[in-house]
Design a protein around this nucleic acid. Structure first.
Lengths: 218, 218
DNA sequence: GTCTATAGGGGGATAGAC
DNA sequence: GTCTATCCCCCTATAGAC
């Protein structure tokens, strides 16, 4: 058979099927058998191509998160070089995190799936997922933590930490549950308009991050 | 043997063990065998007392969420009767949702576990969990949706819907991941001080909900 | 590289003695 | 109400023919 570029390889079929199923049901909940039957490949193919379920999971995640996080860092690079030693605008920093994730695979049929995966990975920790997650996000977290600091220089470290996790929480909930939210909201909350969704998310998170400082006794 | 009130029944031992394991690993990920061994009961005890894993899950969740949501609704009742036909304050409404969840089991050893369960239930949907979740939260959601409307009368329906889900997302992420957040933040984000944590969460969510309105083309 | 077949371990659920 | 023993299904992983 001639090597025809558009022909999906067995490996890709497995990755596609696994990605869709992981997004729908969670990573642990999906048996390799289901991936096999969904991908229409042989029952030994996964172990031949990847070696184990853990290695497959790593490959599925890396295929999306590596380019996604590279794009986020590229946007941050641009922001940083644009302001020089000046102050970063928190809305711009948030946009650099949110928009690439919302854009992921827009227009493709499988797009919703791996956008949901982006949110899901933050709340699946058990066993080997923990270390996969850390490897995927270490650089991103360091760079954006520093950017948050620069954009919000007046916040105490503790205050910023609290608000950062709450902002992250709101973002991953929207990404992860986008379909059930679309349904629950009766069609109002639609992430398929990327710029609108990004603007709403950025605005919400920025408002929380910039809220007036509270005083506590401790 | 005399009926001694402090003696935990087999049923309670099962519920306690299941709750802790569900909070740690997720509901689907926990096999009944693990609950059995953790609870130190007989391998047939769960099926004798509950009938199935689904019925056990329902019992575990109802034991905590029924009183929790009753308390939230009681607080909302008080707010509503205090303002009469006037306007509700969004911060008070948010506090009525957040504070009871943070207070759940504070001081007890197993408290962290079922506080995490509160957050976890929002992102485990597969199969029978969906309908259990709806049953547990139907009344709460209706009442608090109406309260949000009353507290934020100037927001368009769509705007309010978006912001509501983002606020919910930030809350459940904090509840659900409280231990990993405590660790990741180097001890800064501690939910054991209930009033401080509640105040921070309320402030963040309220700021996002009250952010200035954006204009969109659609 | 792709197939069938199967090993080997867990999973939920149940029967039936005590 | 509590125990032991076991059924039957599904899981990951591998061996070995083609």
């Amino acid at each position: 058979m001639v090597d025809f570029p558009a022909m999906p390889t067995t490996k890709d079929q497995i990755l596609d099927a696994a990605e869709a199923l992981f997004a729908d049901h969670g990573i642990q909940a999906v048996p390799l058998r289901k991936i096999i039957s969904e991908a229409g490949v042989n029952s030994a193919a996964i172990h031949y191509h990847f070696g184990s379920k853990e290695a497959l999971v790593k490959a599925v995640l890396a295929r999306r998160f590596d380019p996604l996080n590279r794009e986020r860092l590229l946007l941050l690079d641009k922001l940083e070089s644009a302001v020089g030693s000046g102050q970063l605008v928190i809305e711009d920093v948030l946009y650099a995190i949110v928009a690439p994730a919302l854009r992921l695979g827009q227009g493709t049929e499988s797009g919703v799936g791996f956008r949901r995966l982006v949110g899901r990975i933050f709340t699946e920790h058990s066993g080997y997922l923990e270390s996969i997650f850390k490897d995927l996000f270490r650089e991103l977290e360091e760079r954006f933590d520093a950017a948050f600091r620069r954009a919000l220089p007046d916040l105490m470290e503790k205050e910023l930490a609290w608000r950062k996790y709450m902002a992250v929480g709101s973002m991953i909930y929207i990404l992860r549950e986008q379909e059930s939210i679309l349904k629950m909201s009766g069609g109002l909350c639609d992430t398929s308009n990327v710029e609108e969704a990004a603007a709403r998310m950025v605005q919400f998170m920025a408002a929380g991050l910039k809220a007036p400082v509270l005083r506590f006794k401790n």
